[in-house]
Design a binder for these strands. Structure first.
Lengths: 220, 220, 220, 220
DNA sequence: CATGAATGAGGGTTCATTCAT
DNA sequence: CATGAATGAACCCTCATTCAT
């Protein structure tokens, strides 16, 4: 009758907040690794060190847990972004720092890209029903806006740059080589690695900064 | 995006090649729409207008069919790329055309992005075991190489640009806003649409062309 | 039929007898509404306004609770029957009154029919192991016996009538149209309602009284 | 790799109609024995000698199977009723025969009472959505109508008897002692058995026939 | 070449029951 | 006396896969 108890949670038993957090963390890992339909509730329970019914007690069902995990992805990524301070850098350096930060951030928190890819693959059904993601996300956008303002004020940057579009450029160049790492490695034999990405970020920063500079731009 | 079951099959029964192609086509649709674990063999059979055992006869099992569909994604996308002719444009215009072509190509063949996202989500296990993807790889790369050569020869472009990196830049700016369309719409209220993407491609082309031009770009 | 959770519990917490009664009442409702396997311990706890472990503390397990609820069904129905006084009516009127009372009693306490149907569906396993049901059994039987005695003494009723059989006739005509109300409504479009049942009871009383009267009834 | 196959269906394999019938039969048994929530799909599959998925292939889900089983209860009971021929008996004898037939029918096909009790316990939700039960059911009603017509024509029976109400009386007296057999045995120590029921049917027939006779009835 | 029929092995979810406080 | 937290054991249902024709 005495049954062995998963040791990992020995110290966390009967602690709802810890249990909830453990499940959420496990879910984020599982969903980001294998996607929504690939995820197994059993595996999430095992990863969290809880029994399956706990998941249903705390989150309702698999879909609700997925939604919570998606939201958690944004919450966690924002926490990383909070640490970013660009105010002391001049605009150009700030842009460069931002590109590097984004690249590192994506690289060091791979579940973020994976989670968002999963969600986009599913058509965004879930995120559309999350009520506070817009607010949660993204400090980056405010950083971008501020940099553009300063750059423009100092005459360094052109005017007419939309912060969202700029952010999308930055995110694009960081996202693609990480998200598509495996196919790029095979198809183009691209030697993607932390070092390669750093070098790539350098070039991307050059490109973006060049685009922002006032001067002989707009030729469309 | 077309979900119609090909009526084509009605009159061509007992034609192995047509059957095989129908299955492959259906598999590509299904896998790209719902991912690997989300895909259902039943649904693929229904879409192809064949019975399930046919699938096993022709392809072995679900994983093999997935591999074939992944390969087919590259084959089909290459067919689109074959139509591209940039030789008559000057290097800058060629780059711009390439950016626009890529954007349109991704937009008009959404299963390509979806399929590759699926594969990358799975860690690239499958593509690593496909023996000829590198060969059937994007002709775009050759186009890029040729443009760079011409641009460099004419003194317009800098030297030292790696065609793979340039292609990755081009692909990045086209890929991200389409792949992440749903989350971007919600999180940044980005009004992504065919028009928005065209405008975005214009700006991206500006940025990339600027980066390629010879001159005293600060590189570090 | 009342589903409200008794607010009664709020101020009487920590009163074992009240808690026990609340659980029993809730169990009777739940079991009679959805049967033994349909009943949910959670729901019983919620209806009773107690926590689940209380149920196990007070009653042991679901089966024991079911047994207690079954016994309670008899206890409660008897309490209703206690109010019946037929001594002042002449035998015929007493029989009629008994039929109407039974019909009303079944109609107003629907959980009784439902509970007994549930138990019979289960093969009577539980009731066989209840040690005192026979004692708390229907006082109706005693009423029937007394009526028969008086009717026979006055020469109005035949002799040789078994009280149990008579009671079974009375119960039969009242039970069936209520118990089978839903199927009768659909299959025979029988417009069963309180009014219909009253009229039906009248006819049933005629039939039964006619059967009891002394005279030259052909008995086969 | 060679696996033993349930011998019971060895000869019925790959025969959809037989498989379907076997499942339906098994379902009728299971549902009537343990009710809707007590029924186990596994057990139905085992009883039918098929694998679980077959049940879902043939019937959809548990509820649909339950609906089919309920309908089947009526279909089967009607088949028994078809054998009944009362035309050659005089009206009184016909009524007596009908009572006995009904009693025997309920006794010999116990799943009918059990199935209908289950359905009524569930509030008739299912039968209301069955579109052809009214038509299926019940030859008995036509028999009753015909007997009443003949009895009335010959001056033997009163007029004003509703066939549905008469049928309900007949069904009532047959239904109750069988349906409530287990509780009656315990609570009233009623020695219910085939013999007891036959004798009971005799008395019930007397009672009903007495009620139908023209003469000093209507005294309400 | 082709398919309707069938199934083993899970997958998500619920439920009676118990533990720790 | 009382309960929130937790779980093993099912239960309904689905899915990739195979068999028999």
């Amino acid at each position: 009758m005495a049954k062995a108890v998963s040791p990992i949670r020995k110290d966390r038993k009967r602690n709802p907040e810890v249990t909830r957090a453990a499940i959420l963390h496990a879910a984020l890992e599982e969903f980001s690794e294998v996607g929504h339909s690939g995820a197994r509730v059993d595996r999430i329970a095992a990863r969290a060190g809880v029994s399956k019914p706990m998941i249903y007690d705390y989150f309702g069902d698999k879909d609700a847990l997925y939604a919570a995990a998606l939201r958690e992805a944004y919450v966690q990524i924002r926490q990383g972004e909070m640490t970013l301070d660009l105010d002391r850098l001049d605009p150009e350096e700030a842009v460069r720092a931002l590109v590097h930060f984004t690249m590192n951030h994506f690289w060091n928190n791979p579940w973020f890209i994976r989670m968002l890819n999963t969600e986009n693959l599913m058509g965004g059904e879930t995120i559309r029903n999350l009520d506070d993601v817009t607010e949660i996300q993204s400090v980056l956008l405010r950083r971008v806006t501020e940099i553009l303002r300063r750059g423009n004020a100092s005459g360094l940057f052109r005017s007419g740059i939309d912060p969202v579009e700029l952010y999308i450029f930055i995110a694009s160049v960081c996202w693609f080589p990480i998200s598509n790492m495996h196919t790029l490695k095979v198809v183009f034999r691209a030697p993607i690695s932390a070092e390669w990405l750093t070098a790539h970020a350098d070039k991307a920063a050059d490109m973006i900064v060049g685009y922002l500079r006032s001067g002989d731009e707009a030729e469309g």
